[in-house]
Write a protein that binds this DNA or RNA. Sequence first.
DNA 1: AATGAATGAGAGTTCATTCAT
DNA 2: GATGAATGAACTCTCATTCAT
Lengths: 224, 224, 224, 224
Amino acid sequence: MAVTQTFQRLKPPKREKILATAIHEFARHGFRQASLNRMARMSGIAKGSLFQYFGTKEGLFRFIFDHAVELIRHNLRRVKAETADQDFFERIRSSLLAGVAFIRQHPHIYQIYLKMLFQEDFPFREEFLEKIHLFSAEYLTPLVEKGMAEGDLRPDLDVDLVVFTLDAVMDRFLQAYCVPFLDGNAAVFQAPPQRVEKQVGDLVELLRSGLGARSGGTRLAMNE
Amino acid sequence: MAVTQTFQRLKPPKREKILATAIHEFARHGFRQASLNRMARMSGIAKGSLFQYFGTKEGLFRFIFDHAVELIRHNLRRVKAETADQDFFERIRSSLLAGVAFIRQHPHIYQIYLKMLFQEDFPFREEFLEKIHLFSAEYLTPLVEKGMAEGDLRPDLDVDLVVFTLDAVMDRFLQAYCVPFLDGNAAVFQAPPQRVEKQVGDLVELLRSGLGARSGGTRLAMNE
Amino acid sequence: MAVTQTFQRLKPPKREKILATAIHEFARHGFRQASLNRMARMSGIAKGSLFQYFGTKEGLFRFIFDHAVELIRHNLRRVKAETADQDFFERIRSSLLAGVAFIRQHPHIYQIYLKMLFQEDFPFREEFLEKIHLFSAEYLTPLVEKGMAEGDLRPDLDVDLVVFTLDAVMDRFLQAYCVPFLDGNAAVFQAPPQRVEKQVGDLVELLRSGLGARSGGTRLAMNE
Amino acid sequence: MAVTQTFQRLKPPKREKILATAIHEFARHGFRQASLNRMARMSGIAKGSLFQYFGTKEGLFRFIFDHAVELIRHNLRRVKAETADQDFFERIRSSLLAGVAFIRQHPHIYQIYLKMLFQEDFPFREEFLEKIHLFSAEYLTPLVEKGMAEGDLRPDLDVDLVVFTLDAVMDRFLQAYCVPFLDGNAAVFQAPPQRVEKQVGDLVELLRSGLGARSGGTRLAMNE
DNA sequence: AATGAATGAGAGTTCATTCAT
DNA sequence: GATGAATGAACTCTCATTCAT
């Protein structure tokens, strides 16, 4: 167990304060460079207590990590359920908007995610990489399969390749759209809402014209 | 100048040894966590000498950085020139293969690149981000424009959106394909050559069917 | 605050030991050349602890500095009060003797004072120089003014010039008398007490004969 | 010998350059904190050469030191000779003005002098202190003795006490007047010439009224 | 259970000095 | 004789972790 009962039994405000401070610190500095000294100072908690609760720095990070995974998993499930009756490209649009909303709400967690992606000396990196494959494996794949079954997608496409491509494009869109709003210091994320609708819309239209069943830019052109 | 003449005048084997050790160290640990102590120990020189050569840790990194930028820029130019007469999608295929080859040859540089992408406290990160926009701005954009002018691409596409999509897909392909071969410790990159050809081929075919002039749309139109 | 509560809460013997060692070190070597390594070794504590207590080398020096300023200020006030009813030249004599006694009791602080006077790269040097002007401004000036008002001094004298001269002579006397007893290494200050009385006496008599009311100036004025 | 013949045989411009740079460096940073690296860089001379010429850092300082002592001694002798026919207080005035002129011409040497006064870890400090007693012993004492013999000074004065007082006052005057003009960085010494005449004049008048033959002392003597 | 003082290894950096060229 | 590359000790400072209170 990465965290003691002692911590779980703390009064919620204190627990939240510690959690928030730790997430903030790891988001700003990554794992190795994060300082327990700073965390203790900023959360007003004794340094020794942190060790009592989490054993080691790694134990604390483990706790944050699990917490974040849970948040994300829960979010994906919710979006999946709420969009079950939409057409394929609508679901993609909704997923992207949900992604932006999530990052807007939890910017620090997204920063930790970005850091973990390529920072090899994070602990659990292997496990982390496996877990984010959830997105493709558990989220996108069924979506694409359903989309093909229901005729929203061109029937000649390879499912895995489509999943790969969508994953790449969507992930990169989130990065391209959100990173500029992540303040280097804190988590100030305020993107103008009208712009994101437009940009997501354009991207989804491109995907639809390339992958959609009734697609084919030329034909549309000829029709006009 | 980030490096002294002293370093440039060293005997090549020694110079290479120091360079290789430094690249290795930065690739494994990022900037902040990289240790000049380790570098000195591993390259068999005195710690003080590193400072004589590069002034500061940042100076050393700057040197590695410029070296890498030069390597990449040179590579891109070469590929561009060598593929000038190919059709658009052939060029994309060649670019991807060249990318894989480059990473295979310089795995540590690729690791540093990946770390710099999201590790906020790298020095020169701003400059770095500007420089990798070269890829889109100076490399992909002209390619796409020429592809559209010569009728390889559907004429209804927005150039910027296509560039964004290609950038995302190609970058993610390189990550997806190459990262598993990057040993956490060192730079052991040995991917079976026949597989990369196949995978690049499949990806390019998907792009062609989605974005190519004679792609799905027309055929679907004929079907009706 | 230049020093943490941590330090203030230490058991007095340990606190004194650290303080004494630090004063000793700064007295011997000045600021830049003083070594926290040595201090830690000599006071038998860990190097890290010094930083826990004082934050930086400068913080430690700041603490010593404030401590010394307080000592000196307190001493001056005490002497001023205790000699309030004496005639001007008696007060000067008492001040000099008090100065010698102070240096005898706190030789290291006097050494630090001397170093700060002309060692330009001490921290707080500006502040320090301002503070020692206290001596002239807050201590000597009122003394001289009272001395003139009460007819102890020749009425034709310029107050500022007298203050300047007294400051110079007294300061130089303390240097000339005390420096030979300051061991280069440690703080061995043992001047034969009977000699200091004699020397101070002689000096004050010279001052009296030059500046005293019944001396030359007035008579010359009358002669003209 | 503190300096090799090699150095003495250098072409004068090079020799001067090295000397000037070294004086500048020791003036700015004192002995320990002065950096041979910087000296080598600023004088355009190889670091190794400095060691060839002077053996050690201390050897170099020794050379500067002797050079400075020679300059000062020469200056004192010149002033003494040039003022041989003046009255005592005129000579004091001339000496002060000559002191200001010397510092104006060699500000760096004066800075080194000030640093050596109280910086205990200068090499040769003992020897240095002995040598500056030259001023009192070889310069002031004969002046005072002659002044008394010729009736410029009150006959009741103790020669040593007068020498001590003059030494203190004159030294302190030079410090008080010149230090503000010594730029912390370089040696920019530009004091308005008309002011120094006035200030020296006032100080000398005070001395004359206190110590001069036609002042108080005689009358007191007559009173007895 | 909570604290925070103590620690020591390791970080980047500077520098006088040596010595092969 | 002149050079400047090489060195390693010492510097200030940080930090995760331990442990007595």
